[in-house]
C-alpha cells in the first residue's frame, strides 16, 4: 500500500477486451480495435497507480463497477485553479 520506494509513479493502462478471432478465417494481420468511450456503451476498463488516504495504491475500474455506480472525473491538473 504505502510502499512508496517501489511504487511506480505513472503507468496507467487501458485493459483491452480481446477481440474474438474467427476459427475458419485467420487474418494475416490481427487488427486491434481501440475501444472508445461512448454513452450507452461499456466503459473501457483501465488500471492506474493511485493515491488515497495517505497511501500509494492502484485502481482498476472494473473493481468499482462490481460494487455500484461510478463517477469518473478527469481534470486538467493538480494545483490548477478551477
Amino acid at each position: 500500500m504505502s510502499d512508496a520506494g517501489c511504487a511506480r509513479p505513472t503507468g496507467a493502462s487501458v485493459i483491452q477486451t480481446k477481440t474474438p478471432s474467427s476459427s475458419t478465417y485467420k487474418p494475416v494481420q490481427e487488427t486491434k480495435i481501440m475501444e472508445t468511450a461512448r454513452v450507452g456503451k461499456a466503459a473501457p476498463d483501465f488500471g492506474a497507480p493511485a493515491y488515497k488516504n495517505g497511501g500509494f495504491t492502484a485502481v482498476k475500474l472494473s473493481d468499482y463497477v462490481k460494487k455500484g455506480w461510478t463517477l469518473l472525473c478527469f481534470y486538467p491538473g493538480d494545483f490548477t485553479y478551477v
Binding site: 487501458v14 481501440m34 475501444e35 472508445t36 468511450a37 461512448r38 454513452v39 450507452g40 456503451k41 461499456a42 466503459a43 473501457p44 476498463d45 483501465f46 475500474l61 472494473s62 468499482y64 463497477v65 462490481k66 460494487k67 455500484g68 455506480w69 461510478t70 463517477l71 469518473l72 472525473c73 478527469f74 481534470y75 486538467p76 491538473g77 478551477v82
Partner: peptide, 27 residues
Amino acid sequence: VYGVYDEEAGVELRGRFIIDPDGIIQA
C-alpha cells in the same frame, strides 16, 4: 480512450462519466 486527452496541451479535459453497475456509461 475516454476522448478527453488534449494532445497539444498534454493534459486531460474536465470529463465526467456516470457509469452504472453494469459498466455502461450512462452520461
